[in-house]
C-alpha cells in the first residue's frame, strides 16, 4: 500500500444522538479523484465537514502521515480546502474579494497573484465579473466562484461537496470538465455527488455510503457496474424519479 494523502480511522459524526457517520475508514491517494456516493442523508456532507473541521467527530483523521489538526483554520493551512455544498460564497463581497478570502492565510503576495492568475485562466467568466457583488452572479458562476475560491489557498486536497447541485445540464458538464482540469493540475480531489453517474465517470475510486456506513468501495469502474449500485443509484434512478413525481 502506497502512502495515502488522507486516511480516516473509524471516523464517526453524530448530532444529538443521531449517528450521521459510523466508523468509516477511507483512504485518498495523492493525485486521485475519490468519489463518495450515496443518497440524501447518507452522511456524505458530514464526512466532508468532519475533515474540514466544522463539525465535531470521533475517530482519527490522518493527513500526509500526521494527525490532522482539529481547528478549521489550521486544516486550511495544512493544505485542505473545502468547497461546501450550496457554495456558501460571500454574497455581500465582490467576486475578487471572495477570491482574496480564499487566500486568507497566505502572506506571499506574489505566490497568491500567481494562483489568482491560474484561477482566472480556468474560470474566464470570473474575470469578467471581477467587481460584481457575488450575490448577483448566476448559479453556475457562483459554483465557479466557490471552486475558484477553494483553489486560492493552493490546497493539496480539494473537497468538493455537490458541485453540480442545482445547475443546468450543460453547466454540469462544464463543472465536471473543470474537475478533470483541476486533477491535471496535480490536485487530489474528494468528490461528493448525488449525480452518481457523473461522479463515477471522472473518479478513480469510489465509496458508497448507506446510512452512515461504507457499504461498498473500489475502483470507480467496478463500482459503476456493481448491480447494487446500478439498482440504487444509476439504472433505476429515472424510474424512481417518475414514480416520485407521480406520487
Amino acid at each position: 500500500m502506497g502512502e495515502a494523502l488522507l486516511r480516516t480511522d473509524k471516523l464517526s459524526v453524530s448530532f444529538g444522538g443521531i449517528h450521521a457517520l459510523r466508523e468509516t475508514n477511507i483512504e485518498i491517494n495523492p493525485g486521485e479523484i475519490v468519489a463518495i456516493i450515496g443518497s440524501n442523508g447518507a452522511g456524505k456532507s458530514s464526512m466532508m465537514n468532519a475533515i474540514s473541521g466544522v463539525v465535531k467527530y470521533s475517530g482519527e483523521i490522518e493527513f500526509k502521515g500526521r494527525p490532522l489538526p482539529k481547528q478549521a483554520h489550521r486544516i486550511v493551512s495544512a493544505g485542505i480546502s473545502h468547497v461546501p455544498e450550496g457554495r456558501l460564497i460571500f454574497a455581500n463581497l465582490t467576486t475578487m474579494e471572495n477570491l482574496r478570502m480564499g487566500a486568507y492565510l497566505r502572506n506571499d503576495a506574489r505566490a497568491v497573484a500567481k494562483t489568482l492568475e491560474r484561477v482566472l485562466d480556468m474560470f474566464p467568466r470570473l474575470k469578467e465579473r471581477e467587481n460584481q457583488i457575488a450575490g448577483t452572479l448566476s448559479g453556475g458562476e457562483q459554483q465557479m466562484l466557490a471552486m475558484g475560491r477553494g483553489l486560492m489557498s493552493d490546497p493539496e486536497l480539494l473537497l468538493l461537496d455537490e458541485p453540480s447541485l442545482g445547475l443546468a445540464p450543460i453547466l454540469v458538464d462544464t463543472i465536471f470538465d473543470i474537475i478533470k482540469e483541476i486533477k491535471q493540475m496535480g490536485k487530489t480531489i474528494l468528490l461528493v455527488e448525488q449525480n452518481a453517474y457523473k461522479a463515477l465517470s471522472v473518479a478513480d475510486r469510489a465509496y458508497v455510503l448507506t446510512q452512515g456506513r461504507i457499504t461498498l468501495e473500489g475502483p470507480a469502474c467496478d463500482v459503476m457496474t456493481n448491480p447494487v449500485v446500478v439498482e440504487a443509484y444509476l439504472g433505476k434512478k429515472r424510474n424512481r424519479l417518475i414514480q416520485d413525481t407521480a406520487e
Binding site: 474540514s52 473541521g53 466544522v54 481547528q71 478549521a72 483554520h73 486550511v76 493551512s77 480546502s81 473545502h82 461546501p84 456558501l88 460564497i89 460571500f90 454574497a91 455581500n92 463581497l93 474579494e97 482574496r100 478570502m101 480564499g102 486568507y104 492565510l105 475560491r149 489557498s153
Partner: peptide, 20 residues
C-alpha cells in the same frame, strides 16, 4: 476587515477559508 465582512455573511464559510 475582509475577514470581518466575510464572517458577517457566513461564519462557516469564512472558517473554511481559514479565518480564525
Amino acid at each position: 476587515g475582509l475577514g470581518i465582512r466575510a464572517s458577517s455573511f457566513s461564519i462557516k464559510a469564512s472558517q473554511l477559508m481559514g479565518v480564525n
